[in-house]
Computed example of a mutant assay.
Amino acid sequence: MNAGELLATRFEEHRPRLKAVAYRMLGSLSEAEDAVQETWLKLSRTDDERVENLGGWLTTVVGRVCLDLLRSRKQRGEQPLDTEAPATHVPDPQISPLPGGGEAVDPEQEALLSDSVGLALLVVLDTLSPAERLAFVLHDMFAVPFDDIAPIVERAPAATRQLASRARRRVRGAAPEPGPDRTRHREVVEAFLAAARGGDFDALLELLDPDVVLRADGGDVSGLSRFVRGAPEVVAGARSFSTLAATTYLALVNGRVGQIAVHDGQAFSVGEFTVRDGRIVEINILADQERLRALLDARAIAELAAAD
């Protein structure tokens, strides 16, 4: 194995962590892949023998790449930073078949799923400034010291600590924490979907927290994007979505049991549910057809159907 092949092998060992960092920073699977690829290009042009801690170096570089992308979004007006106006943008969901042929999540996957991040949290991260998001993600999610984060955001460590602290307060106040019982989560989601299909208004209300939020991102299609709060309003929205797709499958959406709706063989929507104390507190639905085509092709839909 030559030096280039050895370097590529070492990089691949760090790829999962780098992609996890980039996804939490960007909320876009394609952009996360691009950020990781850019990190590899930077490494390939660097004298790696001078890099004492390759994992730390790579995390710092991917953080810088993501920070530049976030700042570019803000300059183009693509980053939803107005926390007073509810955003309907839903980040890219990570979708995979249910393990064990539709059974509850098996113990072997617990470590992986426990590291998943829900769409509700990613929505809140979208409201942070680029520097706040970087400080929070790297420190609170990946335990990167503030001394290492400070040069990336071009601030002193104490100021960087304040960035993460502000972000932490925003996240705690806006991102609902799901309950730890995955089996109960699935039961609630299945009951909600069955009640929606059957038009059981009372059952839907019983499964929803009174202050539940539903966020739907329909992309450029007029009328599909919406933000509603309150159980009666969410019931109306959920029932309207349930009538638009003939087939639905359960799948893992960001590590939680969610719904894939299919119409004419193509994905119509992906729904993720945050369940706490036996009730749904937030529903995030991606119905942007352009993004869904990139996320779920016919083969992926077939795999989801076989596992459900």
Rank of each mutant, 00 (worst) to 15 (best):
A159I: 00
R169L: 15
L134K: 02
V270C: 13
A175M: 06
A120E: 10
T160Y: 01
I283P: 01
Y249A: 03
P178R: 13
F268S: 09
V123S: 04
T247A: 06
R168Q: 15
L296R: 13
D82Y: 11
H263L: 15
E49M: 06
V171I: 15
T46E: 07
E31H: 09
P16E: 14
I280G: 00
G230I: 02
D308E: 09
I152P: 10
I149L: 03
A20H: 09
D68N: 15
L43E: 00
A194P: 02
A104H: 13
M141E: 14
G77E: 08
V281A: 05
A236Y: 07
Q259D: 11
F268G: 08
A287C: 03
L58G: 02
A3K: 11
D115W: 08
R133Q: 01
Q259S: 09
R45E: 09
P157D: 09
F227G: 01
D264M: 11
G223H: 04
V270H: 07
L29M: 01
L292N: 05
F192A: 13
V61M: 06
A156H: 14
G173A: 15
L208V: 00
A3E: 13
P145S: 09
G118C: 03
D288G: 09
A236N: 01
A302I: 01
D308N: 14
L67A: 10
L244G: 02
V144C: 11
P210F: 10
S44K: 05
L204P: 00
S96W: 12
H14C: 03
V234G: 05
R293P: 01
P232V: 05
A261M: 15
G271K: 02
R182N: 08
N2W: 00
Y23I: 11
I95F: 05
A167N: 12
D202L: 08
G271L: 01
A307M: 04
L18I: 02
S72V: 05
L26H: 15
E108A: 14
P210R: 03
S28F: 01
R226T: 13
A175S: 15
A3S: 10
R184D: 14
D209H: 13
E272H: 04
E12N: 08
A159E: 15
H89V: 15
P16L: 10
R161M: 11
P97S: 12
R197Q: 13
G278R: 10
L69H: 12
S242R: 09
E132G: 04
P151V: 00
A216G: 11
V212C: 05
R184G: 14
L18Y: 04
V234I: 04
V123W: 02
M141T: 07
A307R: 13
D288Y: 00
T46Y: 07
E13D: 09
E206F: 02
L208I: 01
G77L: 07
L292I: 03
H263Y: 15
P180E: 05
Y249C: 00
T247I: 11
T183Y: 09
G255S: 06
A150W: 13
S114V: 03
V153D: 07
A267L: 06
R226N: 07
P16N: 11
V123M: 13
F273K: 02
R256Q: 12
E5A: 12
T248L: 13
G55W: 07
G237A: 15
S28G: 06
L113R: 10
L6R: 14
E303D: 04
G55L: 10
N254A: 05
Q266G: 04
R226G: 03
A150E: 04
S129T: 15
E108W: 02
G230H: 06
E177M: 13
A245I: 05
G27E: 00
V117D: 04
G278M: 12
